[in-house]
Simulated assay, not measured.
Amino acid sequence: MRQTYRILAGTIAVLVVVQAAMIAYAIGGVFTWIDAGNTLDKSVIEGWDENPPTFEGSLGSFLHFFIIGTVVIPLTGLILLIISFFAKVPRGPMLAGIVFIAIVVQYLLGTFAAATGTPLLSLLHGLNAFIIFSAAVMASRAAKSVTESPPTPSEQAA
C-alpha cells in the first residue's frame, strides 16, 4: 500500500506539470493562430461546441481543461486519499487530505474563473497548482522514506 500511495502522489505531481505544459502549448497555439490572421472573440469561443478549434495546441487546451484537470487529477487525488488510510505512511492521511483539498480548490477556482471572467481567480488557480505539486511531492517523499529500511547491523559493519 505504501508503494501505491507513493506512486499515486508522484503521479499527481507529474500530472500537474503535464497540465501546465498543455496550457502553455494551447496558449502558444492560440497566439500563432491569431498571428496567422484569425480573430479570437466571444463568437469564436461560444461556437467551439459546433465548430471546434483547429489551431495547433487546441488538443492541449482540451487535455488541460477537460481530461487532466476535470477527471484524471481529481480521481487520482480521491484514490490517494482513500489509500492513505491503509498505507501506514507517517502523516499520510494528512498529506493526502491537503492534496485532495487543494485539488478541490483548484477545480473551483478554474470553474469560477471561467464562469465569471475574473482574472484574479485565474491567477490563484495557477498559484494553487504549485500547492498541489508541492503537497504531492511531500506525500510521495513521506512514503518513500518509510519504504527505505535502515541498514542492519551487519550492513553497517561491512
Rank of each mutant, 00 (worst) to 15 (best):
K144Q: 15
G69L: 08
F112R: 09
V89S: 07
I101K: 06
S145V: 15
M22H: 01
Q3H: 07
I27N: 00
V30W: 02
S134D: 04
E46T: 14
I132G: 00
I27D: 03
V137H: 01
G126T: 12
I45L: 15
A157G: 10
D49W: 14
L78I: 13
I82R: 04
I98S: 06
V16Y: 03
G77T: 14
L78Q: 08
A26Y: 02
T147I: 15
S140M: 15
F31N: 13
A142F: 06
V146E: 11
E148M: 13
A136V: 13
M22I: 06
D41N: 12
S61I: 12
V105F: 06
N128Q: 12
I83K: 07
T111P: 03
V17N: 02
L81Y: 09
H125N: 03
A115D: 09
L81E: 05
A87C: 08
A13N: 06
A115T: 14
V137S: 00
I68R: 05
I68H: 04
G117V: 05
S122R: 10
L81Q: 04
P74K: 09
I68P: 03
F66H: 03
I101W: 06
P150A: 14
G29N: 01
N38M: 05
L63R: 04
I82A: 04
P74D: 02
E50H: 14
G77A: 06
I82G: 00
F31R: 15
A20L: 12
L75Q: 05
G117E: 03
S58N: 07
L123A: 03
P93W: 07
I98C: 07
S43Y: 11
M94T: 07
K88P: 04
W48T: 13
A87P: 00
I73F: 03
V71Q: 03
P153I: 12
I132P: 00
Q3V: 15
A139D: 14
A142P: 02
H64A: 04
P150M: 14
M1T: 09
L63V: 09
I23N: 01
S149L: 10
I27M: 03
F100W: 10
L95P: 00
L8H: 08
P153M: 14
A113E: 11
G69Y: 10
L81T: 04
F100M: 14
Y107C: 10
V16E: 01
Y25T: 13
E46W: 12
A26P: 06
P74G: 02
P151F: 15
S154D: 10
V18T: 11
A136D: 02
T39W: 08
A102E: 02
L80W: 14
T118M: 04
F130Q: 02
S84F: 04
T54C: 06
V105E: 00
Q19C: 01
K88I: 04
L123Q: 00
G10Y: 11
I45P: 05
I7W: 08
I27P: 00
I132R: 00
K88L: 08
T39V: 15
L75E: 03
R2C: 10
I101T: 08
P74W: 05
D49H: 12
E46Y: 11
V30I: 13
V14M: 11
I68L: 06
M22Y: 02
A115K: 12
